[in-house]
Amino acid sequence: MTDARPAASDADRAKWRRYLADERAEAAVYRELAARKEGEEREILLALAAAEGRHEAHWLALLDGDDRGVPRADLRTRTLVALARRFGSIFVLALAQQAESRSPYANDPHATAAMAADERIHGEVVRGLAARGRRRLAGTFRAAVFGANDGLVSNLALVLGIGATGVPAPVVLFTGIAGLLAGALSMGAGEFVSVRSQRELLEASAPDPGVQDAVTDLDLDANELALVYRARGMEPAEAVEQASLVLARVAAAGRLRTPTGAIPLSAEDDEAVGTAWSAAISSFCFFASGALIPVLPYLFGMSGLGAVALSTGLVGIALLVTGAIVGVLSGASPLKRALRQLAIGFGAAAVTYVLGLAFGTTIG
């Protein structure tokens, strides 16, 4: 900036102070996350913190180095700092991804084009880091979320449907407990079979490690290794190029030097599938915990409309929480996901409740 720049208004300086506070807080988020990581992920997070430091220096320069009166960062960023300091989890990265995508720099004349580009790129970097965590979490998390949600919705529907027929409260209670046990066992067994089958399919599709030994004896002119790459989805020209590269290394060194092997691995990632037992246990436990909530009022001796109202309210809160968690981890709006989860759950329960009322009237 030159001395000929126009005088800044009070509104501009107030805005720069807010930006300065947010940049400092975002840098703190990345440093806190880096403190819990090691290796490449730590280096990436520290590089992001350094970039936020450059942005901080830009706003500080516009303020002529005067950082007096800098406000606290916005609530969202302060929350991220607190979460990063205490947990350092995938949730923080997912929230940081959303924060980077909402940067106002692209439309602010006082921010440089490089700063706006930085924020766009930061969003992709954080998305990549979050994707690593999602892959590690995917198998068990899927079973946990789906298990809890199924337990909430199915047992609420069961309890409300049976209760609407007018049967005594103990019958509703025992029906709910039976639904809890049956559903949890079914979900656990289903997840075990599903994940085990998926892993077996991946293992069947994975390259045979013994094939590597045959590479050194291949006919370099025929280059049949290209057929392997083509069979795994490469275009013919790309397959020939890759196979030629591998065979050239073999010819030069007399052995295969590529760290990941000559044969491409399956596109699926075993890490994202999870283990059969972890998925089964998570599914069982979370379905049971979700299915327990609609039964709680009856466990404590309630009955009638009071039990129905409390059961529905508790399940509604739980559905909002699980929906928001899915939204955060998927990088989407937590509010939209929470409301969608609530609408689906209450819709299913309302259908069974109406059917129960109709059935009870018919019996009466």
Results as ranks from 00 to 15, higher is better:
29 V>E: 00
30 Y>K: 06
31 R>M: 03
31 R>I: 01
32 E>G: 03
32 E>H: 12
33 L>C: 08
35 A>D: 08
37 K>S: 12
37 K>L: 04
38 E>P: 01
38 E>D: 14
38 E>K: 06
38 E>V: 01
38 E>Y: 00
40 E>S: 08
40 E>V: 05
40 E>M: 08
42 R>V: 06
42 R>W: 12
43 E>L: 12
43 E>D: 15
44 I>M: 13
45 L>D: 07
45 L>I: 14
49 A>H: 06
49 A>D: 04
49 A>F: 07
50 A>Y: 03
50 A>T: 14
50 A>F: 00
50 A>N: 06
51 A>C: 03
52 E>R: 08
52 E>I: 09
53 G>M: 08
53 G>V: 10
53 G>L: 11
53 G>N: 04
54 R>Q: 13
54 R>Y: 02
54 R>A: 14
55 H>V: 02
55 H>M: 06
56 E>P: 03
57 A>S: 13
57 A>R: 15
57 A>N: 13
58 H>E: 13
58 H>Q: 13
59 W>N: 08
59 W>V: 10
59 W>Q: 13
60 L>C: 11
60 L>D: 12
61 A>M: 14
61 A>D: 15
61 A>C: 11
61 A>G: 15
61 A>N: 14
62 L>F: 09
63 L>A: 14
64 D>K: 11
64 D>E: 14
64 D>V: 10
67 D>S: 13
67 D>R: 14
67 D>V: 05
68 R>E: 13
68 R>G: 12
69 G>W: 05
69 G>F: 01
69 G>T: 04
71 P>T: 06
71 P>H: 10
71 P>V: 02
71 P>N: 10
73 A>T: 05
74 D>R: 11
75 L>M: 10
75 L>Q: 15
76 R>M: 12
77 T>C: 03
78 R>Q: 08
79 T>G: 15
79 T>I: 04
80 L>F: 02
80 L>I: 05
81 V>P: 11
82 A>L: 09
83 L>R: 15
83 L>S: 12
84 A>M: 12
84 A>H: 03
84 A>Y: 07
85 R>W: 01
85 R>I: 03
87 F>Y: 15
88 G>S: 09
88 G>A: 07
90 I>P: 03
91 F>A: 14
91 F>E: 12
92 V>I: 00
92 V>G: 06
92 V>E: 10
95 L>E: 08
96 A>F: 00
96 A>L: 04
96 A>M: 04
96 A>P: 04
96 A>S: 03
96 A>H: 00
97 Q>F: 01
97 Q>K: 09
98 Q>I: 00
99 A>R: 13
99 A>Y: 00
99 A>F: 00
100 E>F: 02
101 S>F: 04
101 S>I: 02
102 R>G: 00
103 S>R: 00
104 P>K: 12
105 Y>M: 08
105 Y>W: 08
106 A>N: 01
106 A>P: 05
107 N>F: 09
107 N>M: 11
107 N>S: 09
